[in-house]
Amino acid sequence: MVEIRFHGRGGQGTVIASKILADAVSKEDKYVQAFPQFGVERRGAPVFAFIRIDDKPIYIRSKIIAPDHIIVVDPSLIDAIDVTEGLKKGAFILINTGHQPKEFQHLGKDFRVFTIDANEIAIKYKLGSKAAPIVNTAILGAVPRIFDFVRLESIIQAVRDGVPVNPDANAAAAKEAYDSVQGV
């Protein structure tokens, strides 16, 4: 079983990202469970989402406190909270940022950092606005590049099915993100 925690801010669509990833994983003949932090979400406040992926039915239903990996949708959270809390040794950390992975060495030697500039890709494909780009699909495009539980085709299909508008631009953003991950 793989357990991943998403870090974002309320209003960024972090929970939706975890849901679309679950959609993509469901196309892989695997079992999946995705859930938000149970509670009241405020715009701009740190939020979490969680996903479990396994080859067999998933019975555990408690919160994930020691994730295998994390995905940081909003890099400003790295200075605000301890995103690596409970994170297992050998974890991958995927960060939405224009910076290089080596600039995040302070997160610890036990982890491997990958970066993707999802904001830039989202702005290029006119997803959301320049001030508030919708970065979900670009983040998700980076996922199959570093993890082996889901293929890019499944991500693109899930993105096409899951976005309310501009399926082509969203799919292209996911593909471009796949090709631009730093640290691989």
């Binding site: 469901s26 995705a34 859930f35 938000p36 149970f38 998933i58």
Partner: peptide, 11 residues
């Protein structure tokens, strides 16, 4: 259960 099922996505 609230949240553990109501707001949890699965296949």
């Amino acid at each position: 259960d609230a949240f553990s099922l109501s707001h949890t996505y699965e296949i």
